[in-house]
Amino acid sequence: MLFFIGRRLYQAALVMLTVALVAFAMFQYVGDPVSNLAGQDTTVADRELLREALGLNDSVLEQFGRFIFNAVQGEFGQSYRMRVPVSDLIAERFPATLELSLVSALIALIVGIPMGVYTALRRNSWLARSFMTLSLIGISLPTFLIGIFLILFFGVILQWLPTFGRGQVVDLGWWTTGLLTASGWKSMIMPAITLAVFQMTLIVRLIRAEMLEVLRTDYIKFARARGLTERSISFSHALKNTLVPVITIIGLQIGSLIAFAIITESVFQWPGMGLLFIQAIGEVDIPIMSAYLLLIGFVFVLINLIVDILYFSIDPRLRVER
């Protein structure tokens, strides 16, 4: 077990280094940060001084080395544009993204699992068919389109829901939350739904497929033969066995929630990390971009590691293989 985890950790570190290198290499080409840091009357010579002070004239390798050296110590440098440490910014923005992701994951699960189970059990009913059609439409709608149309309809035409931001946030010192105020919840609805639609359809289809597989296995047939009720078969036998792979995939999907949050956050001006990142790209705020990618890389690696370990402990067959 320890050896297994050790090996995965070593691999994880390699992955992180690669992510960092790739991200860093990309940033060499996204533009010149200095043009945003100086006013229009600033002379060429002063601009050059600023480049020098920021270390932008050093070789790429040097800059990368410095970046890694600092990152290992938890030091991501300072945002060029907002002029505060990047670690502060991320700490400030992280709660927004996490709350949004969790709420939409919850919506996706609560709506998705029953729909998936139903469509598998009553495969040919009209309701199941319309669920499947809905889920197909859900998969076919790009996230940004959903967001735009929700804003147009519920925000602007009906004026029911706020169209941007987190509403009133409560600061707990180490965490800011929008979940304690009514305006916070209202602001959450549209972005959370936007983000949830794709995950939800994925879950419906996944559960359905897995259930159908499980329902054909011998032990379900055997359970039927034993005369157990359909209900008990569906829920205690079939669903339970479906859930293992589903949980894995959902775990992995949390990562993609954070990534899709980039789009949702930029449509709803949700002050999370995705918005921070996409705006940093526009303003060539290199320290933020590097830190974000490293962090996201870290989250993914961590999730993978947890999923691997879970697998390892749930499914004894894997132990033999390793």
Partner: peptide
């Protein structure tokens, strides 16, 4: 397969953003 695992753990859209950034940078 290790490479594949690593890549599979990142959403396609993020990878595409990255690759796009790198290539257009070059």
């Amino acid at each position: 397969m290790r490479i594949a695992d690593v890549q599979l753990s990142f959403p396609a859209i993020l990878i595409a953003l990255l690759v796009d950034g790198i290539i257009s940078g070059l």
